[in-house]
Design a protein around this nucleic acid. Structure first.
Length: 484
DNA sequence: TTTTGAGTTGTTCGA
DNA sequence: GTCGAACAACTCAAA
């Protein structure tokens, strides 16, 4: 007697290659039914934002195409997840459900409940790793505790066994005799805004094929000068892989081995590529998930408890100006507008924009995290939380409280020829470089020549940075950082 | 066991 | 103009 059908429950693993759950389903021998269940309420309070849903729509569409090329299909349902899985299993006589693990607190709870319920019904239910190089519970320091500093964490990871070779995509995915019914992708209403969908389509190609191409282009190009160019937002110096990795269109293991092969072809010694800046960024992603797993309250609460007492400002006008890219600081505004237009912001600019919110405006990092969550196509609970807590100084391995980015000098240093600012703040385009990062200081004649009136075409500075810095230093110094 | 030093990403000030 | 110091408190591993 041949095996019953298996369900492959698809979540943030929108790929066929290096997919342990899919492989387990294929190996089991019966038909394989790939299922996506739309159940955002189960991820509350961190259900995907508008940009993330938009990417998801396009990536699911790409996955459906990839599945068809293997003789399969994508079955789409709406939640609750357990009900949907139960129905499909009943309709198809499936005896097993396989999925790849996620690490967000709400998802962990949901998955555990689903697994228990499926097993109670006599179904096989198994989950697999793959989204991370190491499962978070396997990494402990010498005291048996989770790491709270990046460098020892990553050193520990690098000292362990090298990541296994990625799994190949199955050659064929056996189809059931009769497919269960499926909703059309459009029925999920993921692409609510045409503006965003267009913006994403114009600069991204969601899906595993787009991810592989993006990686190859990066390895062929920017990788060689990554350490130098990664901080220059006007240059194509970063990989732009973040949304692809978030949605599991490509895995860190695939990236690791692609870097290894490329380095081998160029006779780069192992210790050099293993400790390269780029793989270190993969390490930061691992670290973020490590922290979220071991400190699950950090999306909403500062890890360092002393910060619970910090009196953040509440100022809707400040928040709106920041969100809309109208702070009067060109580098910050360029970043916020890039985010709004494309669903992505250059990493270095994220730090500067985040520092501006938390330290110049003294608005809570949670407000910034909320906006990024809704607008980033790569919005990822682990990484968003780590990044914002780091900037605000209240997280693990946090930025020292006195580290306040100066948006003007950062602009002059990292965007000296103004390519980035001129692209996203076109009203400033005709200003000479000398004044581009501090337009309010430009002499009247220069402003007139550039066709620019401060306050009319472009706002004056929302706050005076020098003063704001002093106020922030004082406010941060006042917290007793020791636990109460 | 205790001590020591380092720890992604900065800025300003004074010598 | 360049350079070093100062700007906390805490974590972690190595000595």
């Amino acid at each position: 007697m041949s095996a019953s059908a298996s369900l492959h429950w698809i979540r943030l693993d929108l790929r066929l290659a290096d997919n342990a759950a899919l492989q387990a389903a294929v190996r089991r021998g019966g038909a394989v039914i790939p299922v996506f269940i739309h159940a955002p309420a189960e991820e509350a309070p961190w259900q995907p934002g508008a940009a993330s849903r938009c990417w998801l729509h396009q990536s699911l569409s790409a996955l459906h195409g990839d599945l068809r090329a293997k003789g399969s299909r994508l079955v789409i349902r709406e939640g609750p997840s357990l009900e949907a899985l139960g129905e499909i299993a009943a309709e198809t006589g499936a005896g097993a459900v396989f999925w790849n693990r996620r690490y967000e607190p709400a998802v962990i709870r949901r998955d555990a409940a689903v697994m228990e319920a499926l097993r109670a019904r006599g179904l096989q239910a198994d989950s697999f790793g793959g989204a991370l190089l190491n499962e978070p519970w396997t990494i402990r320091n010498q005291g048996g505790k989770p790491f709270q500093l990046f460098t020892p964490f990553w050193r520990h990871c690098l000292a362990g066994p090298a990541p296994a070779e990625p799994l190949p995509a199955p050659r064929a995915i056996p189809a059931p005799g009769k497919w269960p019914k499926s909703l059309p992708l459009e029925a999920l209403g993921l692409e609510s805004g045409a503006r965003l969908a267009e913006g994403i389509r114009s600069c991204w190609r969601p899906g595993a094929t787009g991810a592989r191409k993006r990686l190859r282009r990066f390895l062929d190009g920017a990788l060689a000068n990554y350490a130098r160019d990664r901080d220059r937002p006007g240059r194509p110096g970063t990989s732009r892989l973040s949304p692809h990795v978030h949605f599991g269109e490509i895995t860190p293991r695939q990236i690791w081995h692609a870097v290894r092969r490329r380095a081998g072809a160029q006779r780069i010694p192992e210790e050099a590529w293993r400790s390269s800046r780029f793989l270190t960024e993969v390490g930061w992603r691992e670290f973020a998930h490590h922290l979220l797993y071991h400190f699950p309250r950090t999306p909403n609460e500062p890890l360092r408890s002393g910060f619970g007492r910090f009196l953040w400002r509440k100022n809707k006008a400040f928040l709106n100006a920041w969100q809309q890219g109208r702070t009067g600081y060109p580098l910050v505004d360029a970043g916020m507008r890039e985010l709004w237009a494309t669903g992505w912001m250059h990493n270095r600019v994220r730090m500067i924009a985040a520092s501006f919110l938390a330290k110049d405006l003294l608005l809570s990092w949670t407000q910034g995290a909320g906006w990024f969550w809704d607008t980033l196509v790569d919005a990822d609970l682990a990484q968003n939380t780590l990044g914002w807590q780091w900037t605000a100084g209240c997280g693990a391995d946090a930025a020292p409280y006195f580290r306040v980015f100066n948006p003007t000098s950062q602009g002059e240093k990292l965007d000296p020829s103004g390519d980035y600012v001129r692209r996203w703040c076109p009203e400033l385009a005709r200003l000479p470089d000398r004044w581009l990062h501090q337009p309010w200081k430009a002499p009247p004649g220069i402003l007139a020549n550039a066709g620019l009136s401060i306050g009319r075409d472009y706002p004056g500075p929302l706050v005076n940075h020098a003063i704001a810095r002093e106020v922030a230093l004082e406010a941060f110094a006042r917290i007793k950082l020791a636990a109460p």
